[in-house]
Design a protein around this nucleic acid. Structure first.
Length: 752
RNA sequence: UGGGGUAUCGCCAAGCGGUAAGGCACUAGUUUUUGGUACUGGUAUCGGGGGUUCGAAUCCCUCUACCCCAUCCA
């Protein structure tokens, strides 16, 4: 199915192939300060999934470096979630808190090599000293302390001799770093707090940036995958490991976009608020996007894993449509779960021409679900149908019961409405109907055609059940806070009716209530006396959708207008160069512009032109310099380049005299950039001289045409884009050596 | 504003110079005792503008928009 690999797997594969690592080792490193949500599920699927795919292993690590927010109940929830999803962590659960002694030693090491110091600025001052994104910060005077003093202070911090906030340990990096994270980041802070695991043993706790990379290193992690907001932290990650000399085999961090779903909040803080504010019944409220919530709602692990697979992994911030998740659970349950009949909003129907009672045979599964199993459904004179399934004055396209339209009772008979009984307010209270004795399901000889079959329950034998109908928690697509909550996210129906077999036979815990949706016997509140079902998700409902559409006219969407910004004007010198390039050398203005504005590039161009004897055509050379050399010069200085201007001049000349095509020139250039070899030698060694002789090219074209009759037909039918396909094939066939211009002409000619 | 990222269909997402994958959603039709499922078909020229090239979503220049960073959180 998925031919394509995500970028993380691509990296892992390359690293394995290159021998950078013998085995892939990943980790799922949550902080135990909240219940895991579906965003964690994505991370779990990535970390455990990649480890599985490449036969490595994945650790489960509690990143518990902040004693004030963490708790054992959350580590249980985390373990639970991973297991429920079906993954196995390697060995025991790991805890960063178990590494506190090692981490402390590493910190001491850093102090000893002068790369960390104890700072005694106040929190306020530290913030001030850090500077802003545009202004650099300044170093604290305490950074002057001697190694001995730092060692002494740090040890006393550890021993609890100071109050919270009195001192911190910081890395000595660069207070004017453009990356704010690198302005002497904090490594340790004093916390006189009880840690849920290490108890009162420690008075200093490592910060994330110090603890995480080292924990990864300690565990032998190869690929440390985290979300995008840690991109800036990668520099510290590398700095710590490099500075400590932990660089033989060590982990590298890679970032992917975190999951966001519309109509959903994913921040632990906001979820906590919902729980504490009583807007939901707890972390496992079926409306919560927590794993516990989905589980309680009735979602299957398979559906969630499938969802995580479908949404992919990339670096673009994105918002997944909740419909995609809903599809996954429907798709999973469709082939697994028995169909039964329930009526949520009952309307009584009396079948006046039916006497007595009978039991009807009914399969639990429709024909397209290859599963066995059936039950008996009692039938008698009095039944209930869904109130929605009858309309006195139906709109066009209504398929259900009306005074004029008969309907089949699923698994039973066809009935016809004879009379509508209403109360004093005009509400319909009962339907008087007649059934057709010849129309029994499976042995219908009536010949009557009806537009639909509806669910029903027998009045006498139906069981009363509670049904909790859940809708999305928020009514806003991008909810901010509790003001965006959907007031109708929970509807409790106390007196829904269900066919008896569901309760007495209990064929499953998840069901499809025919024509309504998928439901789950609540794992906590369900009892035989008082059954409770949670709505997992509704069926797709094209009728309901049609009705809604009529109300909302579609609104035309205005196209976004692109604003063009100002281009910085050229300096005088740049302008002079530009004029020279366009005038004397006849470069087009775009190329001249690029060259004139970039001093490095400009110098390079000038040298290539002047030093190659004879000089290449200035235009062709300029093209190569601006389009190819520019790429190399973006990240490197001139001295770092493997090639020199003269060689580029030679390359340009080969293009000038058509020894090689410009396509080949690019290939040669790549080679030069990599090896620094002379272009003429490269062309000779690889035999890249281009083929322009039609008599050599023509046979190849014939061959390609013969091999691709379909595409020839398509091309002749007007799909001119296919020209590229044919040219490409010919070029591929000749190792890129065929003169593309000639090929192009010949192919066009041939296919005319 | 300095730095770091990202932009391909309504929503995700492949693609790495040679015919714009796939899923969801939408839509038309076939099958159907679920207005379900299944099946068949439809639906983009790649943020904008230039340039290089026989050929550009892919390379170069430039502009724009959005996200992250100034917690003793992770």
């Amino acid at each position: 199915m998925s031919e394509s690999k995500d970028f993380l797997r691509t990296i892992v594969e390359e690293d394995l192939k290159s021998g950078k690592y013998k085995e892939v080792v990943t980790r799922f490193p949550p902080e135990p300060n909240g219940f895991p949500h579906i965003g964690h599920a994505k991370s779990i699927c990535i970390n455990f999934g990649i480890a599985d795919d490449y036969h490595g292993h994945c650790n489960l690590r509690m990143d518990d470096t902040n004693p004030t927010t963490e708790d054992t109940k959350y580590v249980e929830a985390l373990k639970d979630a991973v297991q429920w999803l079906g993954f196995n962590w390697d060995g025991n659960v790991r805890y960063t808190s178990d590494y506190f002694p090692k981490l402390y030693d590493y910190a001491v090491e850093l102090i000893k090599i002068g790369k960390a110091y104890v700072d005694s600025l106040t929190e306020e001052e530290i913030r001030e000293y850090r500077g802003t994104v545009t202004e650099s910060g300044k170093r604290s005077k305490y950074a002057q302390r001697s190694v001995e003093e730092n060692l002494d202070l740090f040890e006393r911090m550890k021993n609890g001799e100071f109050k919270d906030g009195e001192h911190v340990l910081r890395a000595r990096i660069d207070m004017s770093a453009a990356n704010m994270k690198m302005r002497d980041p904090l490594l340790y802070r004093i916390r006189h707090a009880h840690h849920y695991r290490s108890g009162d043993e420690w008075h200093v706790y490592p910060m994330y940036d110090f603890g995480h990379c080292l924990s990864d290193y300690i565990e032998g992690i190869s690929h440390s995958m985290c979300t995008l907001e840690f991109e800036n932290n990668r520099d510290i990650y590398d700095w710590v490991l490099d500075t400590l000399g932990l660089d033989t085999v060590r982990p590298y961090q890679h970032e992917f976009a975190r999951l966001a779903i519309n109509y959903t909040v994913m921040s632990k803080r906001k979820l906590l608020e919902l729980v504490e504010g009583g807007q939901v019944s707890g972390w496992d409220d079926p409306r919560m996007p927590t794993i516990a919530g989905y589980r309680r709602r009735g979602y299957t692990p398979e559906s969630i894993i499938n969802f995580c697979d479908q949404i992919g992994i990339a670096k673009a911030n994105s918002m997944v449509d909740v419909a995609q998740l809903e599809f996954c659970i429907r798709d999973d349950l469709n082939t697994k779960v028995p169909r039964v009949m329930a009526v949520l909003d009952p309307l009584k129907v009396t079948i006046v021409n039916y006497e007595g009672s009978e039991e009807l045979d009914a399969s639990y599964y429709p024909e397209d679900v290859p599963k066995e199993g059936s039950r008996k459904i009692p039938f008698s004179k009095e039944i209930y149908i869904e109130r929605d399934d009858f309309m006195e004055n139906p709109p066009k396209g209504y398929f259900r019961l009306t005074p004029e339209q008969s309907v089949r009772l699923k698994h039973a008979y066809i009935i016809t409405c004879k009379e509508v009984i209403k109360d004093a307010n005009g509400n319909i209270t009962e339907i008087i109907a007649e059934y057709n004795p010849e129309s029994k399901s499976g042995q219908d000889t009536s010949g009557i055609k009806v537009k639909s079959a509806i669910q029903w329950v027998d009045a006498k034998t139906a069981k009363t059940v509670e049904v909790r109908v859940y809708d999305r928690l928020y009514s806003s697509e991008a909810p901010e806070g509790i003001e965006d909550l959907n007031p109708h996210s929970l509807q409790v129906i106390k007196n829904a009716l269900i066919e008896p077999a569901v309760i007495t036979e209990k064929p499953d815990v998840r069901f499809q209530f025919e024509r309504q949706g998928y439901f789950y016997a609540d794992p906590i509140d369900y009892t035989d006396e008082k059954p409770v079902f949670n709505k997992i998700v509704g069926l797709k409902d094209s009728w309901g959708k049609k009705k809604k559409e009529d109300k909302h006219a579609s609104k035309p969407q205005a196209k976004k207008v692109q604003i063009d910004g100002e281009v910085v004007p050229m300096s005088e010198a740049e302008q002079a160069l530009f004029d020279k390039y366009t005038g004397e050398f006849k470069l087009n203005s775009e190329v001249a512009n690029t060259l004139a504005r970039d001093e490095k590039l400009s110098n390079f161009y000038y040298e290539a032109l002047a030093l190659s004897v004879p000089s290449p055509n200035p235009v062709g050379l300029a093209n190569i310099v601006t389009n190819e050399v520019a790429r190399e010069l973006k990240e490197k200085s001139v001295d770092e380049l493997k090639f020199n201007p003269i060689q580029i001049g030679e390359l340009a000349k080969m293009v000038d005299d058509e020894t090689i095509s410009s396509k080949i020139a690019k290939q040669v250039f790549e080679e030069m950039a990599k090896t620094g070899e002379n272009p003429i030698q490269i062309v000779e060694a690889k035999g890249l001289v281009q083929i322009s002789d039609p008599s050599k090219i023509l046979p190849i074209i014939d061959e390609i045409i013969a091999k691709n009759p379909d595409n020839v037909a398509k091309f002749k039918a007007g799909n001119t884009k296919l020209l590229g396909f044919f040219v490409g094939q010919v070029l591929k066939n000749t190792g890129g050596k065929a003169n593309p211009k000639v090929v192009n002409e010949l192919v066009s000619e041939k296919l005319k």
